[in-house]
Design a protein around this nucleic acid. Structure first.
Lengths: 318, 318
DNA sequence: GTAATATATAGATAATTATCTATGGAGATT
DNA sequence: AATCTCCATAGATAATTATCTATATATTAC
């Protein structure tokens, strides 16, 4: 294989095709025509001297050589990104950029970490993507971001996770609700109420469903709502009860109270998740380090946990 | 800095200049003219947007940017070298992966080939799929695997086959069976017995059925069973006789004896089957070569046959 | 002061890369 | 069977890269 026949452009195009699983889709993303991308792949394959891709029933697959090349491309392109960051640092201070995707509820938590970080590193550009669980999972699979925030992380191939904050789930009702002042409400009694909850697949719902299942119970009366905000408004209006992350209740909120239910709050944790198979940009690493160093000062110290350094060590980052 | 303005050639030239400490010397080493190298450095510097080198009293020094770039160049060029090594390993079949699907009975045979191969090539990942004949055929049509093992290969479009081991089919009965000690049992006599057999479509049954048909005969009393294990247990219990692959009878098995029947054992062979219309991974090629080279040492030499090299030659692989 | 060596710039050319449009074949969908 | 989508190939063009020779300038050695 001739080094001079390999260009960074070819590597970029290749990585895009693999990531999108389609030559046509990669062409659209790169603003090239489909024959251009097809020809670039051909040139790359010729430079390597091996087939890189194969189509089986319309599905794009990497050959072994294609897999090996893909990893090498990611490493080289990632090293170029590092180089750029290093050069920017030389020019003046710390800069760079990274992207972070989080489930809806995390938007109540993450600004307390991102805010101080942006103050300490004003030149770093942070892109924040917020969505429901399914949307964030999709972004994870498409490798669109550098860091992912889940409260109940799925079991993901290529994922490395670190808990950083407890995320207790509590039961809430309106102040005037019959169960509002009761002690130790039993689960059978509770399940007589109507439950307001998010779409299937949301972490809170999944955790609550599985918790009920371990007790041989399940919900009878429920109403699905599209956002936590809608749930809060509905609970306050007496439409029912709900399990929510304690984070979504601002301090001083009136009209809503937590219920005393056996076995609650449910313990879950906020996690930082990164892909093992993808290079973590300098700025993202810096953020994770900064976050780990400032958990106590930015969040309630009783709720924090420090696994982020382990995560970075796992990735070979110190 | 524009990625596309950076080429591997520029990186090579730069590393050479730094290493030799002189543009003229690097030019000599690279078999280029001095103005060429000077211009390449200029283009690189322009691409980076920073001076990279400075001359102090005739001595070449790297600027900070030059230092940062030098390290990045070494990493990227080093990663290219690794890539080449990886590709060479793949081509030699020393690493990579392949998938092999086999009919149930083959699991008594194939470990004796796969085990030594995995010991000799620990870096190769082998996926083994086991199923009945229909399932393996389905996988063949879906192009899910690289190698298929059948004892009685179907006539398949796009298939190339090579026999590697005789697979004699014998008639068995319980030790106490009336025919157990008889010489040269006639077929009419034999067909008075109840036959335990697998589902329609299994190789053994197909072969036996077609063998009977060539003699103008057919089964009268039969009992279908779901596995060879169940057949063996049934035979030992005196439920009837059965045609089985000799392989499924472990040495030293008691309670079951082969019957002396005219025309038996039936000759069949284990086959390696690959798709002509699909590229065979290097690791799979390496396995077939290794298997062909080790048939005598891994299996009973009296039963092996060497057609695998012909198969590979047919596929244009030497 | 002169010669030798190293480096930068100018002008030029060949080779290569990157991209387009046009079009045909294959497979999937309707 | 017709249509749509995806991919590969052909032909073409623009842009860029890589290299040359010629030559000027600066520095060092003698």
């Amino acid at each position: 294989m001739k080094l001079r026949h390999l260009t960074f452009r070819l590597l970029e195009v290749y990585v895009s095709v693999v990531r999108h699983g389609s030559i046509s889709e990669a062409a659209r993303q790169l603003h090239l025509t489909q024959p251009t991308v097809s020809l670039q792949l051909k040139r790359l394959s010729e430079a390597v001297g091996e087939p890189l891709l194969e189509h089986t029933r319309g599905q794009l697959h990497l050959t072994d050589a294609g897999q090996v090349l893909y990893r090498a491309c990611q490493d080289m392109l990632g090293r170029f990104d590092d180089l750029q960051d290093n050069l920017l640092e030389l020019k003046g201070g710390h800069s760079g950029r990274f992207s972070i995707a989080m489930v809806n509820t995390a938007q109540y938590v993450m600004p307390r970490l991102l805010g101080p970080f942006s103050q300490d590193y004003p030149e770093v550009d942070v892109t924040v993507e917020i969505g429901n669980r399914e949307q964030v999972l999709h972004r994870f699979h498409q490798q669109l971001d550098d860091i992912y925030i889940f409260s109940h992380p799925p079991s993901l191939e290529h994922a490395a996770a670190a808990r950083f904050l407890r995320n207790p789930l509590i039961m809430i009702a309106a102040e005037e609700h019959p169960l509002a002042g009761a002690d130790e409400i039993s689960l059978p009694r509770l399940l007589e109420e109507r439950f307001l909850l998010r779409e299937p697949g949301s972490a809170t719902r999944m955790l609550f469903d599985s918790w009920l299942q371990t007790r041989g119970l399940q919900l009878h009366r429920s109403l699905q709502m599209a956002s936590n905000e809608a749930i809060r408004v509905g609970v306050a209006a007496g439409m029912g009860v709900a399990v929510v992350s304690q984070h979504v209740l601002p301090k001083g909120l009136t009209g809503i109270v937590p219920l005393q239910v056996e076995g609650m709050p449910l313990e879950s944790h906020w996690h930082f998740i990164v892909r093992r198979d993808r290079r973590l940009p300098y700025a993202a690493r810096r953020f994770l380090i900064h976050a780990d160093d400032h958990l106590e000062s930015c969040l309630d110290p009783a709720y924090v946990c420090h696994e982020t350094r382990q995560l970075l060590a796992q990735l070979g980052i110190s």
